[in-house]
């Protein structure tokens, strides 16, 4: 899993590339949480267009980051969602709490 981060004002955009499964979840979670240590970030935009695979372990990672951000009044936005990931997001009701761009 590779992360490419860019910050503009309160918005942090992170482009994820690679496969997000249980194997890569821990490393991805640590990298995202390191970026979120910056308290001026109130919006996390996750660009998933470079992801070649994601299953429900990835959903766990996204939900965890959402909880973290919402605790400090921030929000999470996803973009570049492929049809398979979109189905997992729909099933889980993720779009009720996470915005899709």
């Amino acid at each position: 899993m590779e992360l490419h981060a860019q910050k503009r004002g309160p918005r942090l955009t992170v482009r994820l590339s690679g496969e997000l499964d249980h194997h890569s979840a821990e490393q991805t979670r640590i990298m995202l949480d390191t970026l979120l240590r910056d308290v001026t970030v109130s919006e996390l935009l996750l660009d998933l267009s470079g992801m070649s695979f994601m299953d429900s372990a990835g959903l766990g990672v996204i939900l965890g980051r959402f909880r973290k951000l919402s605790m400090r009044g921030g929000r999470l936005i996803v973009k570049g969602v492929n049809p398979s990931v979109d189905r997992i997001f729909q099933m889980s009701g993720l779009y009720a709490i996470v915005e899709r761009q």
Partner: peptide, 23 residues
């Protein structure tokens, strides 16, 4: 059941079986 997980400490979504069923 959707969202059920026996290991909440692992930040699991509890959607594994639901995904298998749907796909």
């Amino acid at each position: 059941k959707p969202f059920f997980t026996s290991k909440p400490e692992l930040e699991r979504s509890g959607m594994g079986f639901s995904v298998m069923e749907a796909f």
